[in-house]
């Protein structure tokens, strides 16, 4: 089933529409997909994300989530129930001073009965591996833990789509790993559709599909490997290669016969193969 559909969507933050943050974007995301959206700061990635769950509605064109039109205000609530979103700053998302109260916020909003909320908190905290922090204060947690709580707060609503708007940008490597592990697990084990907005190339490699945005437009769309093998195009869009791919390119330039590699593991394997061949 088609989870998200953009049809010639334009969005402008300005009254006079002199500049579009999202400019004529058409795309479709299937249920269960794991899509990474790449692009420099200001390329329109976050605007795109907010268009999905009706935090913004298109200036022109149409966005639909499971067939529901985001421009139709009567559908807003249903759309937000099925498309949850985690934001960038781990400090600006929690509403309560105790973890379980914060996770309860979403279910309370959609009118889940009390007994059921307790179960959903258990489920959501387990899903992000934070079951031991039920009574902790969010302000005392690390950035990665705070983001996992934010994800739990979304999971408790039981959405079908999880949008992460640069949710790892402010985290340290460990926090990033924690969050990515949770996101992958949700996608693999529960079939949740994941839309991950990031500028970490290494994270994009974990998705099945990557979309590159540049000046409000979708300029590349394909598997991460496909995208990173077009290093010249990436340069045009001001993106950098993953380090392993960069080294690979250098080795190729030095005349070494070596296949493509994007991670440390792949690079080691390719170097091994190449050295042993000779």
């Amino acid at each position: 089933m088609e989870a998200v559909r953009f049809e010639h969507v334009k969005y402008s933050y300005r009254e006079d529409e002199s500049e579009y943050a999202v400019n004529d974007v058409s795309l479709s995301v299937e249920e269960g997909e794991f899509v990474a959206i790449l692009g420099r700061n200001g390329s329109g990635k976050s605007t795109l994300a907010k268009l999905i769950n009706a935090l913004l509605t298109p200036t022109s064109g149409k966005v639909s989530v499971f067939g529901l039109d985001t421009s139709d205000e009567k559908q807003t609530f249903a759309i937000r129930k099925s498309a949850g979103m985690v934001f960038q700053n781990p400090d600006n998302q929690a509403v309560a001073s105790i973890v379980e109260d914060d996770v309860a916020f979403g279910p309370e909003n959609i009118g889940v009965p009390r007994e059921e909320i307790g179960k959903r908190i258990d489920f959501a905290l387990n899903a992000v591996g934070m079951q031991d922090f039920r009574n902790a204060m969010p302000s005392r947690l690390s950035g990665g833990q705070k983001q996992r709580i934010a994800i739990a707060g979304v999971i408790a609503i039981l959405p079908k789509i999880m949008i992460l708007d640069e949710s790892t940008a402010m985290l340290d490597p460990q926090g990033r790993r924690e969050v990515m592990a949770v996101v992958k697990k949700l996608n693999r084990e529960q079939g949740m559709t994941v839309i991950l907005i990031t500028h970490f190339m290494e994270e994009a490699l974990q998705a099945e599909r990557a979309i590159v945005m540049h000046r409000g437009e979708v300029v590349m769309d394909g598997t991460p490997e496909h995208i990173f093998s077009h290093s010249d195009a990436l340069e045009t869009y001001n993106l950098t290669l993953p380090r392993a791919a960069y080294i690979c390119k250098k080795l190729q330039a030095a005349g070494m016969p070596i296949g493509e590699a994007f991670t440390a593991e792949e690079l080691a394997e390719e170097i091994c193969k190449s050295l042993q061949k000779g």
């Binding site: 937000r80 129930k81 979103m85 934001f87 700053n89 600006n92 279910p107 959609i110 707060g153 609503i157």
Partner: peptide, 27 residues
């Protein structure tokens, strides 16, 4: 102000629409 803005988005994204139809977890 920036935090308030972010929080507003985060609350809306978590289906907040005032006390209408809201349940309460803690008693």
């Amino acid at each position: 102000l920036r935090r308030a803005d972010d929080l507003g988005d985060a609350m809306e994204a978590r289906c907040y629409r005032g006390s209408k139809g809201r349940t309460k977890y803690k008693k």
